[in-house]
């Protein structure tokens, strides 16, 4: 792939004393893609992301995030320029409770030289009717959308989203996904972490699975863990007992069963493995 790399990590390591949190991560994120980083708690996900965001320093390895190594010593001016191009949506924040949505977004817009219109940004995250509302009165999902508004107000080239939809109702999640796809279509590169595999499947162009401080695999959600070749489960009832057949050729299997039953197959279901099942299998194999 010759596509421009927005993030490029080679053999990234992070130790806390004797303990290794990140044990040699290699990762490339291309310009304009949504890249999801999946992994159980304690796998090194947050540490990796926070090193890329400049919150923590690496122990060793090579990092380039929009051409800058955030762990290296950089001048204030180049750090400012770098931060102008980056948007961060942290996991949790409970700040500025006494300000209104509008006041907060307007204020954060002042930090950036190429800021989006605060008014439009509030509309885009779906808080139009909460403009004047004090932040303390927002619901969890609304707060999260405000976090996203503050993350994108600077019109970032690269957006970090750390578990963005935790606490959303299904409708709000759909709306949020639309927003993220729209940002991608506008050219924003997005690095996403999430515990929802359906979210990764909906949004991500590529996913990486990280366990015990290392990347296990990087692939598209369709092909991760050999998902495209994985067996399909055909299940049905025979004499009141459920039978499950794993097969690579589900269509002919169903046709065979139809002949056998002479018509309708009782409680037939044909199920391809979900991303979640593949993921859990991968995680399970190392634990």
């Amino acid at each position: 792939m010759s596509a421009e790399l927005v993030i490029d990590i080679r053999d990234l390591k992070k130790n806390y004393g004797e303990k290794s949190a990140v044990a040699g991560v290699n990762l490339s994120v291309r310009k304009g893609e949504i890249f999801a980083l999946l992994g159980p708690n304690g796998a090194g996900k947050t540490t990796t992301i926070e090193i890329l965001e400049g919150y923590r320093k690496k122990t060793s390895g090579e990092i380039s995030v929009l051409g800058i190594d955030p762990s290296a010593h950089i001048s204030k001016e180049s750090e400012r320029k770098w931060r102008e191009k980056i948007g961060i949506v942290l996991q949790t924040a409970g700040d500025a409770a006494d300000l209104s949505v509008e006041e907060t977004v307007n204020h954060y817009a002042k930090y950036y030289s190429r800021a989006r219109s605060p008014e439009q940004t509030i509309d885009e995250v779906g808080l139009s009717d909460k403009r004047q509302a004090k932040i303390r009165t927002l619901s969890g999902g609304q707060r999260r959308r405000l976090d996203v508004a503050l993350g994108i107000i600077g019109n970032p080239e690269l957006l970090f989203l750390d578990e963005p939809t935790t606490g959303f109702d299904p409708e709000a999640r759909r709306a949020f996904w639309e927003l993220i796809r729209k940002l991608r279509d506008e050219g924003t590169t997005i690095l996403l972490t999430t515990h929802y595999l359906d979210e990764a499947e909906e949004l991500a162009d590529r996913v990486a699975v990280i366990t015990q401080g290392r990347i296990m695999e990087v692939a598209s959600p369709k092909t991760l863990g050999g998902r495209d070749h994985a067996m399909t489960e055909v299940s049905f009832l025979r004499h009141g007992v459920r039978e499950v057949i794993a097969t690579a050729t589900p269509t002919s299997e169903v046709a065979r069963l139809e002949r056998e039953f002479g018509g309708e197959i009782p409680e037939l279901s044909v199920k391809r493995p979900t991303l979640e099942e593949i993921y859990l299998r991968m995680i399970g194999s190392v634990q």
């Binding site: 965001e53 931060r83 980056i86 930090y111 503050l150």
Partner: peptide, 17 residues
């Protein structure tokens, strides 16, 4: 208090000096 709430961490992630 602001450190606990994440205010300062969020600000650190912006170009605000």
């Amino acid at each position: 208090v602001e450190r606990d709430l994440g205010t300062i961490k969020r600000l650190r992630g912006t170009p605000m000096p």
